[in-house]
């Protein structure tokens, strides 16, 4: 087929545009995970408690708890994990409180965030640094 200059130009631009596309979908960053939850709204302080150890005995199983009275949902984020989203707790009509506990994996020392969506549509956040160590002879 004979390429016109217009065709060649279009092909070239297309190739250049393609080179700017991600090679594969990249995992969301911590900021993106939070933004997807809040819709970009400002996040305040207070009103949500995050309980996690200062030093995790083992990064494979770290007990954490969240509590935000009056919240609709709480998102937990491990800011430096390869996939930062950890869990979203959505409280239903028969929830006895807006609190929950679980155990999580942390890939290294990092800040863990708990962001609560309140009933009035506002967002609040708590943060804690959890130190994750390489075991000694725990092997």
């Amino acid at each position: 087929m004979k390429l016109t200059r217009r065709d060649a130009l279009a092909l070239g631009l297309g190739a250049t545009a393609a080179s700017f596309l991600p090679y594969k979908a990249m995992a969301a960053t911590s900021e993106e995970v939070v933004a997807a939850f809040t819709g970009g709204a400002t996040v305040g302080d207070g009103g949500v408690t995050l309980t996690a150890p200062e030093i995790a005995e083992n990064g494979n199983t770290v007990p954490v708890s969240v509590d935000a009275p009056g919240a609709v949902a709480i998102l937990v984020v491990a800011t430096k994990n390869p996939t930062p989203a950890v869990a979203t707790f959505n409280f239903g009509p028969l929830a006895g409180s807006q609190a929950a506990s679980t155990r999580i994996r942390l890939s290294g020392t990092q800040d863990v965030l708990a962001i609560a969506k309140m009933a009035d549509g506002s967002y609040v956040q708590a943060s804690q640094t959890v130190k994750v160590t390489i075991g000694g002879c725990g092997g």
Binding site: V86, A87, F91, A95
Partner: peptide, 9 residues
Amino acid sequence: IDITVEPAV
């Protein structure tokens, strides 16, 4: 409760 669970659990 309805929990969305990610690989970090």
